[in-house]
Amino acid sequence: MTIETTTTGVLVLILIMTLVTLATRFGGVLIMSFVRISPRIESFINTMASSVLIAIIVPMAFGGDAGALAALSVTAVTMLVLQKPLPAIAAGVFAAAAVRYLF
């Protein structure tokens, strides 16, 4: 399989990726509209955010640079202190940017 690198080929690829992204986003909302949100399902949804965060950050700890290690450390500490994923992600991104800018 070859991928066209012409302008038309790139635009077609972007269009396909856009359609797949929209289908998965809207499909998830559509499917979840038929599911009754019980406490067990709500707990699963809340836990998924942390799982995704860990799945993204941990592989970078083994093969990443100083910025990745700073992001991992700051994210872990912020998550332990605040117990909220969004501020932990923001702090990790800021730490990685700061380390990469300074060093």
Results as ranks from 00 to 15, higher is better:
Ser51His: 00
Leu19Met: 10
Leu80Arg: 07
Ile37Asp: 12
Val52Trp: 15
Ala97Asn: 04
Thr18Asp: 04
Met60Glu: 08
Ile3Cys: 07
Met1Pro: 11
Phe94His: 03
Gln83Gly: 04
Ala90Ile: 15
Ser51Met: 04
Val81Gly: 02
Leu69Ser: 01
Leu86Tyr: 13
Ser51Tyr: 08
Thr5Cys: 09
Ile56Lys: 11
Leu19Asp: 05
Phe26Lys: 08
Lys84Arg: 15
Met48Thr: 15
Gly63Met: 10
Gly92Cys: 04
Thr75Asn: 05
Ile41Arg: 11
Ile3Tyr: 08
Ala61Val: 15
Thr8Ile: 12
Thr5Met: 14
Val74His: 00
Ile89Gly: 03
Val58Phe: 13
Met32Leu: 12
Ala97His: 09
Arg25Lys: 10
Glu4Asn: 14
Ala97Gly: 05
Leu53Ala: 07
Ala91Phe: 09
Pro85Ile: 14
Ile31Trp: 06
Ile16Cys: 07
Ile57Val: 12
Ile37Tyr: 12
Thr18Asn: 12
Arg25Ile: 10
Pro39Asp: 13
Phe103Gln: 00
Phe62Trp: 05
Ile45Val: 13
Phe94Arg: 00
Ile3Gln: 07
Met32Ala: 12
Arg40Met: 12
Ile57Asn: 00
Phe94Glu: 03
Ser38Met: 12
Ile45Gly: 06
Ala70Ile: 00
Val52Met: 14
Ser50Ala: 14
Ala88Met: 02
Pro87Thr: 11
Ile14Pro: 05
Ala95Asp: 04
Ala91Tyr: 06
Ala97Pro: 02
Ile41Phe: 13
Thr18Cys: 01
Tyr101Ala: 05
Leu72His: 01
Pro85Gln: 07
Ile41Gln: 04
Asp65Val: 06
Leu80Asn: 10
Ala49Asp: 12
Thr2Cys: 01
Met60Leu: 13
Ala68Trp: 01
Phe103Thr: 02
Arg100Gln: 11
Tyr101Pro: 04
Leu69His: 03
Val99Lys: 01
Phe34Glu: 09
Leu72Ala: 14
Val29Cys: 11
Gly64Phe: 09
Val93Gln: 03
Thr8Pro: 07
Gly63Cys: 02
Ala71Thr: 02
Thr24Cys: 15
Gly67Ala: 04
Ala68Met: 03
Ile31Asn: 02
Leu72Glu: 01
Ile41Met: 06
Gly63Lys: 09
